[in-house]
Amino acid sequence: MTQGDHPVGDTQWPLWEVFTQSAPGKPHEHAGSVHAPDAELALQNARDVYTRRGEAVSLWVVPADAITASSPSDAGPFFEPGNDKAYRHPQFYKVPRGVKVF
């Protein structure tokens, strides 16, 4: 076969997002992506690509197209209202000197 003459429908497989947990009790965090034809191979590929140096104790793989993300234009309405609610933070409350709350 020569260049530009690859089989019709040949792909690099669908994209999956990979989340790794670095230690027990820690949250799963986004590590990157892999391509895989199905969930089992996505898991194996994620293991081989993102835990080569023992970086994880647990893995999640999610089809990239299953993720719904907020859009940049949402940034204002979504997140700014949370910025002025000081009463959600413990520093908002006065505690008599010398008292240990926890």
Binding site: Q12, H35, D48, V49, R52
Partner: peptide, 11 residues
């Protein structure tokens, strides 16, 4: 055959 498998076989 694909980059992911290159990494897997090498492992």
């Amino acid at each position: 055959p694909i980059l992911e498998e290159d990494i897997a076989l090498t492992n």
